[in-house]
Amino acid sequence: MIEIASIVLLCMGAFFYFSGTVGLLRFPDVYSRLHALAKADNLGLGCIVLGLALQAESLAVALKLLLIWPLALAASAGISYAIARRADALGIRPWRREDT
């Protein structure tokens, strides 16, 4: 039962990573690519560590895996704002619907 839940979570994680990459390839400018990569990849990582934590042999091992996620969230938040700010400072204008 736990194994099935773990497999489902791991596959969901892989799906979110995949959609992050799809967003990176499909979205028209750096700002929207940032949305896709930061948000979708983090959810992917969250699903993966949760799925693996379910299989852990002890509580401490499970918590260690789960500890990775908030660190990655903080990293993505800080780095994506830094990139967005840099893009804005470089004068990169966001893509708008009427441009096409």
Binding site: L24, I48, A72, I83, A87, L90
Partner: peptide, 26 residues
């Protein structure tokens, strides 16, 4: 195409790289 796009690489290691490592560990 822009310099800001190339900075996206920095995001990839923190999320995808970490995900690959924990999967390989298991």
């Amino acid at each position: 195409p822009t310099a800001a796009d190339r900075m996206l690489v920095a995001l990839l290691f923190g999320s995808t790289g970490v995900g690959i490592l924990v999967l390989l560990a298991h």
